[in-house]
């Protein structure tokens, strides 16, 4: 795509702004900021990726994945107000899913060990793990509050925190996995996934693009499951204080 063609797409932003002015939504300023931020961020990451792909060094690739996982953990951990030490726990859960899924893909030689493959696939895995983590933390609090009486009964019978919070964590894991499972069920029917669309637009064979997309879809399902289960295991103790009393 030429720069001229790209510049033409700014017409979409202008159209959105005109609609905002017409309906007096007051969103014009936010739209300009969003468009500028997206352009700067994407151009910047484009040059960073070009440099990393060119250097092709494992340390640089690992550093890039580390930065992505830290940003994702920071973003997701904002959802768990009241749970101390969220960032580290979310980062560990995201890292566990990235290591397990990406590690498997590399070890089985499903994808080449090249930054051009590792970084985009990691981005999708980490992004999905971030959404699953945020949903999990949000749901965990709500479930713990809704099932507080049930937890008190179990605690009063001598349950350990893991026994008392078992149903709460299970419900939070299930609801945080639903978006991933639902989007997998409707894939190809409701939406053409981003990566596949990108490959097709870039001229790749659609069948080859579908194969890569299926690889990602299956990896994302495993990633959501690993992230939420690890996060559940790491966060359930925070629902209780030292005397095994509900703390949320």
């Amino acid at each position: 795509m030429s720069l001229w063609s790209l510049a033409l797409t700014l017409a979409f932003v202008a159209a959105a702004m005109l609609l905002s002015v017409w309906r007096r939504l007051g969103l014009e300023k936010d739209m300009v900021i969003a468009a500028v931020r997206a352009t700067v961020q994407l151009l910047l990451i484009g040059y960073v990726l070009k440099f990393i792909f060119h250097v092709d060094h494992a340390a640089l690739t690992a550093a890039m994945v580390l930065v992505m996982s830290c940003v994702a953990a920071d973003n997701a951990s904002r959802r768990g107000n009241g749970l101390a030490g969220r960032f580290c726990r979310v980062w560990l859960a995201i890292a566990a899913s990235e290591i397990a899924t990406q590690g498997f893909l590399l070890a089985a030689h499903v994808v080449p060990s090249k930054p051009a493959y590792i970084i985009p696939i990691s981005g999708m895995i980490i992004g999905n793990a971030m959404v699953a983590s945020a949903l999990f933390l949000n749901r965990l609090r709500a479930e713990a509050q809704a099932r507080r009486d049930e937890m008190l009964v179990l605690l009063s019978l001598g349950a350990t925190p893991i026994q008392a919070s078992g149903a709460v964590v299970k419900a939070a894991v299930k609801s945080s996995m639903i978006p991933t499972i639902d989007s997998t069920k409707t894939m190809g029917l409701v939406q053409l996934p981003g990566m596949m669309t990108g490959q097709i637009l870039a001229g790749a064979d659609p069948i080859q693009a579908v194969r890569y997309q299926l690889l990602i879809v299956f990896a994302l399902m495993a990633s959501a499951a690993i992230t939420t289960l690890v996060l559940g295991f790491l966060t359930y103790p925070r629902l209780f204080n030292e005397y095994h009393q509900p703390a949320v």
Binding site: D149, L152, V153, L154, L155, S156, G158, A159, A167
Partner: peptide, 30 residues
């Protein structure tokens, strides 16, 4: 030890909250 204490000092709460499952599940909970 918290579990030991709660096992030996049993509490029946004002609101009789039932655990999910059957009556048998509730009686077997402890």
């Amino acid at each position: 030890p918290v579990r030991e204490l709660r096992r030996r000092v049993g509490l029946v709460m004002q609101q009789p909250v039932m655990l999910p499952g059957t009556v048998a599940d509730n009686l077997a909970a402890a």
